[in-house]
Amino acid sequence: MSAPRKPLHKGMLVGGVVVGLGVGLVAFGLGAGVLAYTLVKKAEKEARAGWTLVPVIVPQRDFAPGEVLTLDELAQRSAPEQLVTSSMVRPDSATYVVGQALTVPVQAGEPLRWAFFAAATEKLEPSERLLSDECQRALDLQPNRSRPDQTAGKIRERLVGGGSR
């Protein structure tokens, strides 16, 4: 017959409970992490279902109006086909925008549009161009109209600085 066991003292019991809780919390955290990752991936897959990605041309840096694009400063990004219109520059037409001056500020990563280039406005009918010039004169006569900023950097400066022009 074996000797009677010593009763556990409180210190051993508390230590065992603390270790058990620690191991349980770690296991629960890992399980919750795996579950969350799985749910996020499933939601991402559902959100992208039916979305065909097509390439568009974007600048790699911010451009101000009047700057000329070079091939080295352009990149190709994918965009959902449902959001890409014929007004956006596609990779097969990228050579047409190289060497063209921009008429508006463009931020890095923003899809290029044909309307951003002077060549697009030169192709307007004389009546459309006249209407556009007349609209611009009418806007210039408004004394309280805010003036557009020339670059994304100036817009950022104005917003961060808290002032308005």
Rank of each mutant, 00 (worst) to 15 (best):
48 R>C: 06
122 E>R: 10
116 F>G: 02
43 A>Q: 14
28 F>P: 05
110 E>A: 10
98 V>L: 04
56 V>D: 02
112 L>A: 00
98 V>Y: 04
103 T>Y: 05
102 L>R: 01
28 F>G: 12
68 V>M: 02
92 D>K: 09
35 L>D: 11
38 T>I: 08
127 S>K: 14
138 A>C: 08
16 G>H: 06
65 P>G: 01
111 P>V: 05
134 E>I: 13
103 T>N: 15
123 K>E: 12
119 A>L: 08
61 R>D: 07
115 A>K: 08
31 G>I: 04
101 A>Q: 05
27 A>I: 09
15 G>A: 15
24 G>V: 07
14 V>L: 10
53 L>F: 11
76 Q>F: 03
65 P>M: 01
35 L>G: 06
46 E>F: 02
18 V>T: 10
48 R>G: 15
129 R>G: 07
117 F>Y: 05
75 A>T: 07
52 T>S: 08
128 E>Y: 09
79 A>Q: 09
116 F>L: 06
45 K>Y: 10
119 A>F: 11
15 G>Q: 12
58 V>C: 07
79 A>S: 09
11 G>Q: 12
87 S>Q: 13
132 S>G: 15
70 T>S: 14
84 V>T: 01
43 A>C: 02
33 G>L: 07
61 R>A: 10
59 P>T: 06
30 L>K: 09
83 L>V: 13
83 L>W: 08
69 L>Y: 01
100 Q>P: 01
60 Q>G: 15
96 Y>V: 11
36 A>H: 09
141 L>H: 12
47 A>G: 02
119 A>C: 06
71 L>F: 09
52 T>R: 10
142 Q>E: 12
62 D>V: 00
13 L>R: 14
65 P>W: 05
65 P>F: 06
34 V>S: 12
101 A>R: 05
99 G>M: 03
127 S>F: 13
15 G>S: 14
68 V>L: 04
22 G>L: 12
122 E>C: 03
70 T>L: 05
66 G>P: 03
45 K>L: 11
140 D>L: 11
80 P>K: 02
24 G>R: 06
137 R>I: 11
29 G>E: 11
131 L>I: 13
118 A>H: 04
23 V>I: 15
65 P>C: 04
76 Q>V: 15
96 Y>S: 13
137 R>S: 11
124 L>R: 14
109 G>Q: 03
37 Y>A: 14
20 G>L: 08
118 A>L: 09
29 G>K: 12
86 S>I: 08
10 K>G: 10
75 A>W: 03
108 A>L: 01
115 A>M: 09
111 P>D: 04
109 G>W: 05
58 V>N: 05
39 L>I: 08
99 G>N: 02
67 E>D: 07
36 A>D: 08
60 Q>P: 02
82 Q>A: 12
59 P>G: 06
99 G>W: 01
92 D>Q: 14
68 V>Y: 05
64 A>D: 06
29 G>F: 14
78 S>P: 08
30 L>E: 10
25 L>F: 13
21 L>R: 06
42 K>R: 15
44 E>C: 00
44 E>V: 02
